[in-house]
């Protein structure tokens, strides 16, 4: 399978990438690791006429301790996130979940920025970002803005990014409480049939769901049930509320609703025990 024809430009800096985006607008797509975009282009589900390769912008690959938060450059590969000592110490759920993505080959190329920008509801890191109330830093030629994770994912494969925006950084809070990411898949390398992130924060717990709707979802019913004194098992019963999971060969919507409850219970129990 060969992608449709396109032109190719190698961005030499973030500035250069922004200039190229301004120049080519809607017709262009950024190429980071290419491990979501190229499979779509091979199937001709995506046919951009121009690829702007940001894969060599090494100065956008970093993980740094920034006081209350950890800043992660958009071009940081999953493998680097997985192995980061700073993340393991302060926000281990991010390192752990990056290590659950695909396989070694995929983790060598896929980037955290690409994972978020792609807006795939079956992706793992977006769910974790939602549970963490992470901040996404976006640059365009008109300036920089910060978007909260709960406003970033707007629809199926759609995000708050416009056609001339570059995602530059992700900021995650330092955690002091327990956490868990439960991913259920039928073969080791596969995408989540359902995933659940649970994080103990601010005296309560935040819970978010992978592949239970068109975007990653906060399980607010579960969070409220916990806040009003229910135990993990009782709160987890609310996990499927206000979800609209897909049906596909891996599982029906009903199966996913049942799975979401089981995984939420396991995630809460693990997060509270950690």
């Amino acid at each position: 399978m060969i992608p449709a024809e396109f032109d190719y430009e190698l961005a030499e800096s973030g500035e250069h990438a922004l200039q190229l985006l301004e120049q080519h607008g809607d017709e262009a797509k950024l190429l980071a690791g290419g491990h979501s975009l190229l499979p779509l282009m091979k199937l001709r589900l995506a046919t951009p006429s121009m690829l702007i390769d940001i894969g060599r912008l090494d100065d956008m690959s970093y993980i740094s301790d920034d006081g209350d938060a950890i800043a992660i450059g958009a071009l940081t590969r999953h493998e680097v996130v997985e192995g980061s000592d700073v993340l393991k110490e302060h926000c281990a759920i991010v390192a752990h979940t990056a290590g659950e993505i695909g396989d070694r080959q995929v983790r060598h190329f896929g980037t955290i920025g690409g994972s978020l920008a792609h807006g795939d509801p079956a992706s793992d890191l977006p769910t974790v970002m939602l549970a963490l109330d992470a901040q996404v830093v976006v640059r365009s030629s008109s300036g920089e803005r910060t978007v909260a994770a709960n406003e970033f994912f707007t629809g199926l494969f759609e995000t708050a990014l416009g056609p001339t925006d570059l995602l530059t950084e992700i900021r995650v809070p330092k955690l002091t409480g327990g956490w868990s990411y439960q991913k259920f898949h039928h073969r080791a390398q596969d995408w989540a049939i359902v995933g659940v992130a649970a994080v103990q924060r601010n005296g309560g717990a935040s819970v978010a769901l992978t592949n239970m709707g068109e975007v990653p979802l906060r399980a607010s019913g579960v969070e409220q049930a916990l806040a009003s004194g229910n135990d993990a098992a009782a709160a987890a019963e609310e996990a499927a509320e206000n979800t609209s999971p897909p049906s596909d060969p891996f599982g029906s919507a009903d199966y996913r609703r049942a799975l979401a409850k089981v995984l939420t219970r396991r995630a809460l129990q693990e997060a509270m025990g950690r």
């Binding site: 190719y8 190429l31 290419g34 190229l38 080959q105 060598h108």
Partner: peptide
């Protein structure tokens, strides 16, 4: 291996 890292060469462009 690309620079020592295992990679799926069906999912990389030659220009990369």
């Amino acid at each position: 291996l690309v620079n020592g890292n295992a990679a799926k060469s069906c999912t990389l462009l030659a220009v990369q």
